[in-house]
């Protein structure tokens, strides 16, 4: 088994031992999104138009919630030194941490979102589009958040700084994720938006692990 797989499985096992951390994130997503239909009232047309933006923003905030501990926990207990000293590329270790984060955050968000979309009166096709955009878009959020987490390693008030760093970088993903669902609601083609989301994910995948590794080496000094 490669170090990459070992690290992904280790992080999943740690989440399994402490499921509360992930449960809080998913509960936040559910509560935050259901507040909107309750606050706005049963105006189905208005809700359907808001759905994409609200669900995407809530997913973005939810995935950032758990990110401040992504590298900080390994930094605090000294395991980061062992990752820095592992005889394989640190870029892969950073990617493994983000992959584990996506499996326990992004993927459940993509599964949950269509269920919540029902409360916004989205049609069946748009619910599927919503799930698809989140499935393709949340890896980008995990990678960008991972970069912010590695840059704020050891910083005081790292959580707030992390959000400040990560949120602006997530704007393109947010725009194309939400607009894919909107165009689906208004009955237009959404393929282009989905393609751009995929492109954003691939560009993040191809560049951010290197940036994260560099930040971790600095932080590990």
């Amino acid at each position: 088994m490669t170090g990459f797989a070992v690290l992904v499985l280790r992080d999943l096992r740690l989440v399994w031992r402490r499921p509360g951390d992930v449960a809080v994130v998913l509960a936040f997503f559910v509560v935050a999104t259901t507040l909107f239909p309750l606050g706005i009232g049963p105006e189905t047309n208005l809700l359907a138009r808001l759905a994409a933006g609200v669900l995407w923003c809530a997913a973005l905030f939810a995935s950032l919630l758990s990110l401040d501990r992504l590298f900080a926990s390994d930094y605090d207990d000294g395991v980061l030194d062992l990752l820095l000293l592992a005889p394989w590329p640190l870029e892969l270790a950073a990617l493994a941490k983000c992959a584990a984060h996506w499996i326990v955050t992004g993927l459940p968000l993509a599964v949950l979102a269509p269920l919540l979309g029902v409360a916004f009166g989205l049609d069946a096709k748009s619910l599927l589009v919503l799930a698809a955009t989140l499935a393709v878009g949340t890896p980008t959020l995990s990678l960008i958040g991972g970069l912010a987490a590695s840059l704020t390693l050891g910083a005081r008030r790292g959580g707030a700084l992390l959000a400040l760093l990560a949120l602006p970088l997530c704007i393109p993903t947010l725009i194309f994720g939400a607009s894919a669902v909107e165009t689906s609601v208004s009955g237009e083609g959404f393929g282009v938006h989905l393609a751009i989301l995929t492109a954003l994910a691939l560009v993040s995948l191809a560049t951010l692990p290197w940036a994260m590794a560099a930040a971790l080496r600095q932080g590990g000094e």
Binding site: G3, R10, R13, R17, R18, D77, D81, L83, A86
Partner: peptide, 27 residues
């Protein structure tokens, strides 16, 4: 083989798990 002033162990993992995972991370 590195022993820092921090122990480099995961609190939520068992003793043997910690060692096995650390060893597999080293290949």
């Amino acid at each position: 083989a590195w022993l820092g002033h921090l122990d480099g162990l995961k609190g939520d993992l068992m003793v043997r798990e910690n060692l096995l995972i650390a060893e597999r991370l080293r290949g």
